[in-house]
């Protein structure tokens, strides 16, 4: 089994990383230049750090979604999972500082559990992941409203909220270093290591051609289920950051699933699986956030922002589709 896996991977010339990242890096650079033209001190360390801190949740979600998408599946449940987790955390903590850590552990565990259910239903019961996670979305939204009788209750403790909104002050070089950036760094390093590990490569193989992977000894069901668990864990981390940064609401995670999927695709990862790197996915999320900040600085009215977002996504994906066809 092990040998079979290694041989399969050895024959795959496609290394994740490098080449596919050029378009997203160019787009990111262009947006950053436009930003600095308008707001010259944006690139100052402290404002850059707080920008990274604000972008951390969507980047973490994109990393989680990457594993699911590269395996050839979708996870539409992450937005509702974030909402559910924030609301549940507030009710369980109920402004009691001593409950912070147990609840953090509970959130991570329940995120993984939701991912496990998504994964098992998709692989064992052979339900298309689009439907599985759509059903999970309906279930989570309904359950969380039901459990809280239609209005969020309780409150988050300051200890819980610091992950999302506090920072180390007076750090050399950068000045202010938000906790969220550290969380982001840890997640990013873990994600890249996973992506390059045997697991990451078997996952890409399973997404590229499940039949071939199966015949080469990859336990496709197993790695795909793990991908959903990773996405659930990422949603839990994002929920902790979002709850800290913007507080409790039923809108906490609204639309994040489409944001994360868009970010992943912007980063050059193919829907349908088998192609792309996790670095690209995270850069895609960063680019999306940069775009929002840019529109903020240029005073684009809120409603038009979605339209601009849509246009840029279509343009970016069309350009990269053209490139890959030529190749």
């Amino acid at each position: 089994m092990r040998i079979a896996e290694r041989r399969l991977l050895a024959t795959r010339p496609h290394r994740p990383g490098t080449g596919g990242l050029v378009p997203i890096l160019v787009l990111l650079a262009v947006l950053l230049v436009l930003l600095t033209v308008r707001q010259p001190d944006f690139l100052a360390p402290s404002s850059l750090m707080s920008f990274l801190g604000r972008s951390a949740p969507i980047i973490v979600l994109a990393a989680g979604q990457y594993f699911v998408i590269v395996a050839g599946e979708f996870d539409l449940s992450v937005g509702s999972l974030v909402t559910a987790q924030v609301v549940v955390a507030a009710r369980l903590i109920d402004s009691e500082p001593s409950r912070t850590w147990p609840v953090v552990v509970l959130l991570l565990a329940s995120g993984a559990a939701v991912g496990l259910v998504n994964g098992l239903v998709t692989t064992r019961l052979r339900v298309s992941s689009f439907i599985t996670t759509l059903g999970m979305y309906l279930i989570l939204v309904g359950a969380v409203y039901l459990w809280s009788d239609g209005a969020p209750k309780g409150g988050l403790s300051e200890e819980f909220r610091r992950f999302g909104r506090r920072a180390f002050e007076d750090v050399v070089l950068v000045g202010r270093l938000p906790f969220a950036v550290l969380v982001l760094l840890a997640v990013a390093v873990l994600a890249v290591l996973l992506n390059r590990s045997d697991f990451g490569r078997t996952l890409v193989a399973a997404g590229g051609n499940p039949r071939t992977a199966e015949l080469s000894g990859v336990r496709v069901h197993h790695v795909k289920t793990m991908a959903f668990v990773l996405s659930g864990l990422a949603a839990a981390v994002a929920a902790i950051l979002i709850g800290g940064y913007s507080g409790v609401s039923f809108q906490a995670g609204a639309g994040l699933e489409f944001g994360a999927i868009t970010a992943v695709v912007l980063g050059g990862v193919a829907l349908g699986g088998g192609r792309g790197s996790v670095v690209g996915a995270m850069l895609g999320a960063l680019t999306l956030e940069t775009l929002f900040t840019l529109m903020n600085f240029y005073g684009v009215p809120g409603a038009l922002r979605t339209a601009v977002q849509g246009a840029i996504i279509l343009l970016a994906v069309a350009v990269s589709a053209r490139r890959s066809v030529r190749r």
């Binding site: 849509g310 996504i313 279509l314 589709a321």
Partner: peptide
């Protein structure tokens, strides 16, 4: 334009 239908229709 060769855009994946999921992304194309979400974009529109």
């Amino acid at each position: 334009a060769g855009i994946n239908a999921f992304i194309a229709t979400v974009g529109v």
